[in-house]
Structure formats: structure tokens, C-alpha cells
């Protein structure tokens, strides 16, 4: 199956951060989460994918076409939820729906109304009077009502309470259950990727520090926490990060079997959490 989204060696200097050599691929029917702190380039990447800004180098293909120049047919297959409030907020929810509906040939008004009900969105309320979470839901309803095959969400969980976040992530996993639709979302919260995300991309300072199936991290990678003798591990192939701790070192391995030999004596072997991986990845012994 063809990938819905292909990003190849993108470069872009924009805002405060410059994306360097970013590549990713998203096949149909999967969820990809892009995680990183503020200023790591998440929004820049999302905006490149939506075609708001043009790359300085490299190529982006969405449904096989350049998103900055692609035509209506391809653009109608993309659904989006932007992180900034959309500017048409003096309109009521229903009016905003009608306005957006105008642009999509396969807009499903019945489905839109159903989603408004399901999300408990008051149709007559002004969009500007909605809470942050409601706004994300409205964006999602707008995107789902036109049968988008690729959903792009910029930090949908930021500022949401935990219950709401869980609900949203559950909704995303229901969306991809058809095997055709894929979801790409960015987040500051690593645990958002814990469960439903198939692919994880970690950004730091505009560079990809990890990109791959999330399960690889959680099931195959390992952390060894041990004494000063662990410094000897630093040169090993499977080591992806090493950091001085109070007792000695924490070492991140991308292969549990490779980690086991270092685990004699008092050193302990652990499955990493995403937080562990993010903190340790790429760190050097000296730090």
C-alpha cells in the first residue's frame, strides 16, 4: 500500500527553529505521533505538511502530491485541526459548519450533526465562546464530516484535562479502525503516544532523534542502570544514550539482548518508558 504521507529530508528555517533533515512515512490506517518540547519544530513540520509554508529543501508528498500546490481533489482528502484558534470565531458552530461544508463535495451534514451531538457541542454557541477542548472537538467534527483520509492535528491535547485527552485518543484509534484513514498529531506530552500511536517521532531542536514503531521502543529497547563500571558500555553499537546518574550511569540500549551482558552485579535492566527514551536518547556520558 502506498504511504499517505512521505516526508523526505526536509529543511526549513522558520520561526525560531530550523528543521534539519526530517524524514517520515505514514502508511494508511495508522497513527503517528510527533512529540517534542516547545520550539522543537512540531508546528513547523505540521505546517509544511499542510502546505502553509514551503520547504527550503527536500520533498513532501501527501497522497503523492506536493501539499503546497496540490489541487482540490487531494486537499479534500485531508482533515486538519490547527492549534491556533481559527479566526472565524464570531460565527456560531452551525454557521461555521455550513461555511466549511461549502468547500467539500462529499460533506456529510447528517454525520456532522451527529458528531456535534456526540461531542455535546452547542450548535448556536459562538465558536469563540467554546473551551479549548470543545474547539478541538469542533475541528475534529469538521474534519470527520468530509471523510478525510488523513487527519492532521496540531497539538490537540495541549491544555486538555486527562479525561478529555483519553477520550480524544480513543476517538483517534476508532478513526483509523477502518484501515484506510491515518492520523498524524503533534504533542508536548510523551505519554500521549503510550497507547494508541503506531509510530513515534521525537523532535528535538528541529531534528528527528527517533522515528519508528513505538512498540520497538517499549518492547525491544532497554535501560541499564548501574555503577561507574557501566562507562565501559559507552562505545557499544546498541547504545543510544548514556547519562551520569547519582550511582553511576543510566544507559539506553536499542536492543535488550545487547543490554543483558552489562547487567551483571548490581546493575538493573528495565524496560524504558517513552520519557526515559526521550531524556536519554543522544545524551553523552560527559553531560
Amino acid at each position: 500500500m502506498d504511504d499517505l504521507l512521505v516526508v523526505e529530508r526536509i529543511r526549513k528555517a522558520w520561526d525560531v527553529v530550523a528543521l534539519e533533515d526530517v524524514s517520515l512515512r505514514l502508511p494508511p490506517g495508522h497513527i503517528m505521533g510527533i512529540a517534542g518540547p516547545n520550539g522543537s519544530g512540531k508546528t513547523t513540520l505540521i505546517r509544511l505538511i499542510l502546505g502553509h509554508i514551503r520547504p527550503d529543501g527536500g520533498a513532501i508528498r501527501v497522497f503523492g502530491d506536493d501539499p503546497g500546490l496540490s489541487g482540490r481533489a487531494i486537499r479534500s482528502r485531508i482533515g486538519f485541526v490547527l492549534d491556533r484558534p481559527i479566526s472565524y470565531e464570531h460565527l456560531s458552530v452551525t454557521r461555521l459548519g455550513r461555511l466549511v461544508a461549502d468547500f467539500y463535495a462529499d460533506w456529510d451534514e447528517v454525520e456532522f450533526q451527529r458528531l456535534l451531538d456526540e461531542f455535546e457541542l452547542p450548535g448556536r454557541r459562538r465558536a469563540s465562546a467554546l473551551s479549548r477542548g470543545m474547539r478541538v472537538k469542533l475541528g475534529l467534527a469538521l474534519a470527520l464530516a468530509h471523510n478525510a483520509e488523513l487527519l492532521v492535528l496540531d497539538e490537540p491535547t495541549t491544555g486538555l484535562d486527562p479525561v478529555f485527552r483519553r477520550e480524544l485518543l480513543a476517538r483517534l484509534s476508532a478513526i483509523i479502525a477502518d484501515g484506510r484513514t491515518s492520523v498524524l498529531f503533534s504533542t508536548q506530552i510523551l505519554t500521549d503516544l503510550d497507547r494508541v500511536a503506531d509510530f513515534a517521532v521525537f523532535l528535538r531542536g528541529g531534528r528527528v532523534v527517533f522515528s519508528g514503531p513505538k512498540d520497538d521502543l517499549l518492547d525491544r529497547w532497554a535501560i541499564v542502570r548501574g555503577g561507574p563500571e557501566l562507562a565501559a558500555a559507552a562505545g557499544a553499537d546498541a547504545v543510544r544514550g548514556i547519562r551520569r546518574s547519582r550511582m553511576g550511569f543510566d544507559v539506553l540500549f536499542d536492543d535488550m539482548d545487547a543490554a543483558k551482558p552489562y547487567c551483571d552485579g548490581p546493575a538493573v535492566l528495565e524496560r524504558p518508558t517513552l520519557d526515559d527514551v526521550f531524556l536519554l536518547l543522544g545524551s553523552k556520558e560527559s553531560q
Partner: peptide
């Protein structure tokens, strides 16, 4: 695989595996 992933709230890759 897909409905199990949805119901359990885990990734498709996990249930596939």
C-alpha cells in the same frame, strides 16, 4: 486486528504482533 486495537486502546502494530 483493527477492532481489537480500537477496543483495547492500543496501537494496531501491537495487536498485529
Amino acid at each position: 486486528i483493527r477492532s481489537l486495537a480500537r477496543d483495547l486502546q492500543v496501537s494496531v502494530i501491537t495487536t498485529k504482533r
